[in-house]
Design a protein around this nucleic acid. Structure first.
Lengths: 141, 141
DNA sequence: TATTTTTACTTCTAAATTGAAAGCAAAGAT
DNA sequence: ATCTTTGCTTTCAATTTAGAAGTAAAAATA
């Protein structure tokens, strides 16, 4: 089944896939918090409904941003991991973090700050991507 | 009336405001295409419904990302302009452009490419922000 | 000046999506 | 052997969206 795109604009097309309140929160959990199972994602602070979580994971997988696999040691648990395409979202995630930290605090005063990102954006992007690749490598034998 | 936020995470909070298919498309039209009236926005390629456009403009204004004003020369037309807070979205917009250009083309082959952004991201961000500030200055006496 | 057109919406309704809760089957732990 | 956990699916009400139509005032045109 193929997606419908609103236009030929890369921004609009990316938003056709990721423009909702949950997809990038799931990617954040994977990339920054190294979450990997359905349970991990459904127990995040934001309390995503399981039906929405299931549909988002399916969509992200269908677009190749994540993979779904089982480990030989556990036949029940599914392990979701970001692909390189998904890891490539790190710059977007970091820019959103910076913008939110700078401009949303006025409306959500107790917002958590990410000092490393503010201090060294490119460093933080590289660090997170590198760490995540190691995390994947350690899981996928 | 105040917004509800899902958590204390800057990413989730930013997505509480901008996490939908339309808000950043409107910001794109303002920042990159220098659109400024209700008509301008409603005539974009993506065909936003007027009801949604009206509600998004109201929301963006309520969070201080845009301003709404009239020119002394026209008592009907409303002029919507990005504030500095809105102009500050340029890095997010550019990163989304780059990601989309790189990864969505497989699904939307005729995607338009933005060579300047690919060639010089920081330059493109600065250029767009500077140009937009000039555009605003020229409108607001 | 009178009429037509434009602008900026609002309203309406159907369709789609979301959120919350409950249910369920298989695997794993006790 | 039973209880618990995991990974979902299902259900249904509530909210949001998409699309069309309507409206009032301003502006352009005849």
């Amino acid at each position: 089944m193929q997606h419908k795109f609103r236009s030929l604009c890369p921004i609009a097309s990316t938003l056709d896939l990721l423009g909702d309140k949950w997809s990038l929160v799931i990617v954040r959990d994977m990339l920054i918090r190294e979450k990997k199972t359905f349970k991990d994602f459904s127990s995040s602070d934001e309390k995503i409904a399981t039906g929405i979580l299931a549909s988002r994971l399916k969509l992200l997988e269908s677009f190749g941003l994540i993979t779904k696999r089982k480990l030989p040691t556990n036949k029940k648990e599914n392990i979701y991991l970001l692909t390189e395409k998904g890891i490539d979202l790190a710059p977007i995630i970091m820019e959103i973090t910076l913008w939110g930290d700078k401009h949303m605090r006025a409306y959500n005063p107790k917002l958590i700050s990410h000092k490393e990102v503010k201090a060294d954006k490119l460093g933080a992007i590289n660090f997170v991507q590198k760490s995540y690749r190691q995390f994947v490598a350690q899981i996928v034998d």
